[in-house]
Nucleic acid binder design. Structure first.
Length: 935
RNA sequence: GCCCGGAUGGUGGAAUUGGUAGACACGUCAGACUUAAAAUCUGAUGGCCGUAAGGCCGUGCGGGUUCAAUUCCCGCUCCGGGUACCA
């Protein structure tokens, strides 16, 4: 029989679909298993070969678990809000919902071809109002909640209001910004004096106006409005990601970009900092991802230290955070971020121009550019602060390398102990106090953690660990500082000035935001998907009557970010059609945490942190019974594309072949990989590819061919290196594609995509098919059973440790070994092998299951067990090595013990030959493994 | 810059707990079949020296620990990912 994969795959996909084989329901009699995939964004380029990689892996596990008797939830859906659809809408005027729908159906069809065991009846998409009404509902809950530090969880806002009514804010500790009262507009609080420091009584509270109460509550809500710094591009009328800013200009269009403070919705994720770190302990994630999340939260213990301004700046206090209070005596200057509120106060008149210039320049750099900056820059402000312990006057600077958003936006510089501070001091010729014994601070920075302090008064003679507590006590007793825990984590900006995202269920009445409950605020129609002339978000184009729901004086016109919908989708899959709840409690209790999440490591600090945050929040509200979403996670590597390039001679439409490009001034352009075979360009195809190349001329190789350059890089539409799975499915079948993607290498490693090896895998399936079809209804032979059971053991243990690639090799070896047996193979002997194949090549396995006389469908067959009796090896081949180098092999009965092995080896004439008279110093025998003779 | 990964033949990779480096595939070469080609099958295939037996070298680079290191430790190089509004 020929391996007719086309009809086999079509047939079995129809059978599964008719029998609804992959639809699941809660079943109390079976253990559950929840396998989840990364939520795909349906881009216009369609699914590329990198997408299915993770999906195939999770499908293999899902099918394996099903064979093992688990009730498996394996859903798929779409993260369908996003920028590309919006940009396409801006360019063409087409509503993003239309583009999105087209893209989704393409994705869905592509996935269906591959034969995934997804329960499609559970499909969700974030841009569907029946989905995003619940995203809005969760937002509403966050808006109506505060974080009680004492009980360590979120609480309904009403409990906070009740507390304020009773005792003001005296008996309660709510998560908030440090110095939250400084965010308030004092005009709203006429009876609070200048020295208000955040304490108010019940009477104070009751006397506040509604606006004032709103302003206070806003400081404690988990979803709240606040000013935050963004990359504002006036020309485009929009905020840009750091990604979209290059050298202070927008990537798109090259317009100037500046840092600007804007009123934005924020998420108080910082309230969960400690829980986000502690929760990692129980997760089965790679250490590197856990480490990255810990670093992202960035909990550090240290001290806050106050430096009083002197001279013109007296009355001002610069607060800094330091993890090294022990080095306090080494402080010789203070650096403020260019955006720091006190910059003006410390700037002397003669420095004003220079400072303003510097602040302006800095405002044009993105945060990342500033952190990546290698050259040292800054300005001495002219003002001074007083060293809290020595009383010395020390200068104040501003510099790029201090970020406004981290800590207090100011640092105390210890040039002898910090690399950046040291370089800065050298550059500006600032004094470098030598505080480490035996170290020349003028020559280099000290990085010795165990260095002994000197010139530090009461800290002299101590090392870091002993000095820190003493320094902290000193600070606290003199009142110029205190112990403090600082976090790198910042609250997350939750507003986007975009059209294609979830609208907020928020309207404003007298400028006070009010939650719209019990109604879904759907997106209004707009005439264009661009910001308004005044720089308002696109939704501001909607007139009152355009809004399906309009309440209050005006609607919120920002939309939610991409991560809103993807922070809880795994919950919706459990109960996707529920119209009264985001997910019924009995469903989430049944399915519980995701048992296996397969996703890319590129989500480490975004999606994975936000999902954990929302899960913990829903847990606090007792809406679900677990507070971590993903129990086990595998991070798939990226499949990279192989890009091809042509070289255009600058200013001409002549293209020079790769070999001769050095002789010209050329510009390298990406060329569609479908126009290139073995690095040779299809010249005719290239000319008709794009109008601008129609009259292209070529400087070719002597044989008239044009060689392209190549590079391995990320697969993306803009690089014209996208490979879709479609043509491979067409040419080799889904089963081959599935096996090949797994065979390519370890799932977690990134690797370039290359179809060269695919024929080998296709060949394997053909040989497998031929082997089974050629088997007979007879008894299994002993060697046959041995091969099969060895394979069962290998495949099972590889699957358990998620080594997907070696499973394919193991099956290949089994087929090769069985073919080498020459004797007749039996149905009953091969039957377990067909089940082993089924997670990888389910269509072919179904077909072969019939051949070997299996009952029902192979997908429902029980996973075979390796019988120990078939696995017994009676011989062991010992490599015998001399000083670590293997010289010969010796086959011995497996029962030979250590002493016997040693004496047999020593008696072997080859041993004597190797030794050549040398004396044996030591003999190492590892039973069943190796013999090593040291001479 | 900072944080996190990775590097093994011509190529993708294997070696699970420190124990035979290169399994399994691709590619290449040779052979069989064929008038020929394709397909298929068989064999060889890390490098160097050697007719062979065999020897030396070899897991990004430089050191170290060990009877034994792709595996553990120290110091580098290069590549990839993330870096808070790409998803």
């Amino acid at each position: 029989m020929e391996y007719d994969f086309r009809s086999i795959e079509k047939h079995w996909q129809e059978v599964w679909s008719q029998k609804k084989s992959y639809q699941v329901k809660e079943a109390k009699d079976k253990p559950k298993f929840y396998a989840l995939d990364m939520f795909p964004y349906p881009s216009g380029a369609g699914l590329h070969v990198g997408h299915p990689l993770g999906y195939i892996a999770s499908d293999v596990i899902s099918r394996y678990k099903r064979h093992c008797g688990f009730n498996v939830l394996h859903p798929m859906g779409f993260d369908s809000f996003g920028l590309p659809a919006e940009q396409y809408a801006i360019a063409t005027g087409q509503h993003p919902a239309i583009t999105t729908e087209t893209n989704i159906s393409r994705y869905r069809n592509q996935m269906k071809q591959i034969g995934f065991s997804f329960d499609w009846s559970r499909e969700v998409m974030t841009s569907d109002p029946t989905y995003y009404r619940w995203t809005q509902w969760i937002f509403g809950k966050l808006f109506e909640s505060w974080y009680d530090v004492e009980s360590g969880g979120a609480q309904p806002l009403q409990t906070l209001i009740d507390a304020f009514e009773k005792n003001g804010n005296y008996a309660i500790e709510a998560a908030c910004d440090e110095g939250w009262w400084k965010n308030l507009d004092l005009e709203l609080f006429p009876h609070f004096g200048k020295h208000f420091e955040g304490d108010f009584t019940a009477t104070d509270w009751k006397s506040m106006s509604p606006k004032a109460k709103n302003a206070v509550l806003m400081q404690f809500r988990l979803a709240y409005l606040a000013d935050s710094e963004v990359n504002w591009c006036p020309e485009l009328g929009t905020v840009l990601a750091n990604d979209e800013v290059k050298d202070g200009l927008s990537e798109r269009g090259g317009h100037p970009v500046e840092r600007k403070r804007m009123r934005q919705w924020m998420m108080r994720i910082t309230a969960y900092s400690d829980r986000l770190v502690d929760g990692l302990d129980d997760l089965n994630w790679t250490e590197s991802i856990k480490e990255a999340q810990k670093n992202w939260v960035g909990r550090s213990e240290g001290a806050s230290v106050s430096f009083q301004g002197s001279g013109q700046a007296s009355g001002c206090t610069v607060d800094v955070f330091t993890t090294r209070p022990d080095t306090l005596y080494g402080v010789s200057f203070v650096v403020l971020a260019p955006e720091h509120k006190l910059v003006n106060a410390f700037t002397s008149d003669e420095k004003l121009g220079e400072v303003n210039q510097y602040v302006l320049t800095a405002s044009k750099k993105s945060e990342r550019e500033r952190q990546g900056e290698k050259s040292i820059s800054g300005v001495e402000l002219g003002g001074h602060v007083v060293h809290p312990l020595t009383g010395n006057n020390i200068p104040v600077y501003i510099s790029d390398y201090v970020l406004a958003g981290y800590g207090t936006g100011a640092i105390m510089a210890v040039p002898s102990g910090d690399e950046r501070d040291w370089k800065f001091a050298k550059y500006f010729k600032i004094d470098i106090p030598s505080i480490f014994q035996g170290h020349d601070s003028d020559a280099a920075v000290s990085s010795d953690e165990k260095a002994v302090l000197q010139n530090s008064e009461e800290l002299n003679g101590l090392r870091k660990l002993e000095a820190i507590p003493k320094a902290l006590n000193l600070l606290e007793s003199t009142g110029c500082g205190e112990r403090k825990i600082n976090y790198r984590l910042r609250d997350a900006v939750f507003s986007r000035q975009r059209y294609w995202g979830e609208p907020f269920p928020i309207c404003y009445e007298n400028d006070i935001p009010r939650l719209i409950e019990n109604e879904t605020v759907t997106l209004p129609a707009v005439d264009e998907y661009l910001p308004t002339a005044g720089g308002e978000p696109p939704l501001a184009r909607a007139r009152r009557e355009d809004w399906p729901v309009f309440q209050g004086d005006r609607m919120e016109t920002n939309t939610m970010p991409g991560w809103a919908g993807s922070s809880w989708y795994f919950l919706r899959y459990m109960d996707p059609h529920n119209e009264t709840e985001f997910c019924a409690r009995e469903k989430s209790d049944y399915w519980g945490q995701v048992d296996l999440y397969v996703g890319g490591a590129e989500h480490t600090t975004g999606h994975l942190l936000y999902s954990r945050f929302w899960t913990k929040f829903l847990f606090d509200l007792d809406k679900i019974s677990f507070d971590e979403p993903f129990k086990t996670m595998i991070n798939q590597g990226m499949i990279l594309g192989r890009s091809s390039f042509v070289y255009r001679v600058q200013g001409t439409s002549t293209f020079v072949t790769y070999e001769q490009r050095e002789a010209h001034k050329t510009q390298r352009l990406h060329v569609d990989v479908s126009l290139v075979e073995n690095d040779k360009l299809n010249i005719a195809g290239f000319k008709s590819w794009r109008a601008e190349f129609e009259h292209a001329e070529f400087i070719t190789c002597p044989d008239g061919t044009y060689t392209c350059g190549h590079e391995v890089e990320k697969m993306s539409k803009s690089k014209y290196n996208v490979q879709t799975p479609d043509e491979l499915v067409e040419k080799y079948g889904a089963d081959t594609l599935r096996c090949y993607e797994m065979f390519l290498g370890p799932l977690t490693q990134s690797k370039p995509w290359d179809t060269q090896g695919i024929s080998g895998v296709h060949n394997f399936l053909r040989k497998f098919s031929k082997l089974v079809v050629g088997s007979e209804n007879c008894e299994a032979s002993k060697p046959e059973l041995k091969i099969v059971h060895k394979t069962i053991e290998k495949v099972t243990s590889d699957l358990e440790r998620h080594a997907f690639n070696t499973v394919v090799s193991a099956l290949m070896i089994a087929v090769n070994d069985l073919n080498n047996l020459k004797s007749v193979k039996s149905h009953v002997g091969l039957r377990p092998l067909v089940t082993l194949l089924s997670p990888y090549a389910p269509h072919l396995a179904e077909e072969l299951w019939k051949v070997v006389g299996g009952m029902g469908l192979v997908i429902d067959s029980a996973w075979p067990k390796a019988e120990k009796s078939h696995l017994v090896e009676d011989e062991v081949s010992y490599p015998v090595s001399f000083n670590g180098k293997v010289r010969f092999k010796l086959t011995l009965p497996a029962s030979t013990n250590k002493v016997e092995v040693e004496s047999i080896v020593l008696a072997d004439e080859r041993t004597l030959q190797q030794l050549n008279g040398k004396e044996i110093k030591k003999v190492i025998v590892v039973p069943g493994r190796i013999v090593n003779i040291v001479s």
